[in-house]
């Protein structure tokens, strides 16, 4: 099948992300990249665990973390994961408009998450928890900040794809791109599950 062929719902393949060799390569290459990302975040988590009690006189995790804001952020990101699943569902059904709609919702939820995180960091800095305060603060901001920058990158990426393809609809050239972007978005959520558990919840337990 040619990448730019005009397709109909009938001729659209069941697994559009892997219908061309380029798609197959992209699909596999991205999964491998996620394997590498797993190790990247693992290193950040491991360091955080080693340094989390070294507060150097600054506020500790127990004093800082507030459950409501973390809970809200978690709900936003989890829901955005579901909406991107919906987007891919509509992609497989060759319904371009609905796919764009659900990706749009995903982007909005992601932006909400990012805004909460920025607000949260702003608050922490005011409470004397700066990047330079202690080993704990450096490790915290680097781990959570790296995740946040992944969210920001993911937002820009999905937005770019949506705008770039707004007029031409789905084909086998852009279907793998959308699919891979959604994988990235889910992976961000996977990392967040560990962040809210290991950093926030375990931090609040003390």
């Amino acid at each position: 099948m040619h990448a730019e062929e005009k397709l109909t719902a009938e001729t659209f393949p069941a697994a559009p992300e892997r219908a061309t060799l380029e798609g197959k390569n992209k699909f596999l290459g991205f999964w491998l990249f996620l394997g590498g990302e797993t190790v990247l975040f693992a290193s950040l988590f491991a360091t955080y665990l080693a340094l989390k009690d070294k507060t150097n006189g600054g506020p500790s995790a127990e004093e800082l973390f507030q459950m409501p804001i973390v809970f809200m952020a978690t709900m936003l990101l989890l829901t955005s994961s579901l909406t991107s699943v919906y987007a891919i569902y509509h992609m497989k059904n060759f319904d371009f408009k609905k796919m764009q709609l659900w990706f749009g919702i995903t982007v909005l939820l992601g932006a909400g998450f990012l805004a909460l995180e920025i607000y949260e960091f702003y608050e922490y800095v005011h409470e004397g928890h700066k990047f330079t305060t202690s080993a704990f603060s450096s490790a915290f901001y680097t781990l959570v900040g790296t995740h946040g920058s992944h969210v920001a990158f993911g937002l820009l990426w999905i937005l770019t794809l949506m705008i770039r393809n707004a007029k031409r609809g789905l084909n086998l050239y852009n279907a793998p791109k959308f699919y891979v972007a959604s994988l990235y978005w889910h992976f961000i959520d996977v990392v967040w599950v560990f962040i809210f558990t290991v950093v926030y919840l375990m931090g609040m337990v003390g």
Partner: peptide, 16 residues
């Protein structure tokens, strides 16, 4: 994909 994700998870457990 599963093989490489589990590979990453194994390194993660080791590091932690």
């Amino acid at each position: 994909p599963a093989m490489f994700i589990y590979g990453g998870v194994a390194v993660m457990l080791l590091l932690v």
